[in-house]
Design a protein around this nucleic acid. Structure first.
Lengths: 106, 106
DNA sequence: ATAGATTTGTCATACATTGACAAGTCAATC
DNA sequence: GATTGACTTGTCAATGTATGACAAATCTAT
């Protein structure tokens, strides 16, 4: 659960026939670290996403979206019964925030 | 943004004519800390939610939902353009996880 | 002006995260 | 079955972030 990001970069890496060593080198981390990120044992830092997108020739925003989704999933994973409602509330908060920014009320 | 929890416990506290000192005492924190939690400057620890629910005679799960929503909102606040999509993805992950638990596939 | 309630600012420390490394497994090749 | 290369596992010090405690400021009402 919440391992979409790691699984995705692993698939992308393999599809491009890149070794962990190559991707890790581009990110300036070692291969054990990348291995852990790919398997969801550690989470990538948000700042590392552009580097992933670059070497994997993937869309930076798509990767960031996946990364955010993983963080959210991890956050709510122990409260499944409340998770969906909490996300609804958060969606409303964000929508309101976007709306009020447009109308200069913030 | 993402201050629903604090605002809510403040309202509940005032509606019940409780002082910060009383609520803080029940939580074993000092009043400056509670003040910060109410204003969203610091976030309450998840483990403190039952104590809040108890002294404020509020529904524990409702408070937890609000608390979770705040965490999610904070998480995505710098990426508003991706936030809604990320929440969608996370919802799907959670729904899938619930479904697969029911069918014993996990 | 005083007292009580709340807020602001600062700081040491506890806590979690990160990166680095050594050592391990696993698969293919010789 | 030994060697090589790719990946994984486990541990640990270092770093970063969050927490709680405190002093002091502000606000509010009398």
């Amino acid at each position: 659960m919440g391992k979409q990001f790691g699984a995705t970069i692993k698939k992308l890496r393999q599809a491009k026939h890149l070794l962990q060593r190559q991707v890790a080198g581009h990110l300036q981390i070692d291969t054990p670290m990348l291995s852990k990120i790919e398997r969801g044992e550690r989470k990538a830092k948000k700042e590392q996403i552009p580097a992933f997108a670059e070497i994997l020739k993937a869309d930076k925003e798509a990767l960031l979206t996946l990364w955010l989704a993983d963080q959210i999933t991890e956050l709510v994973q122990d409260d499944e019964s409340l998770a969906l409602r909490a996300m609804q509330v958060a969606e409303d908060e964000v929508k309101y925030s976007i709306a009020s920014r447009k109308t200069d009320k913030q």
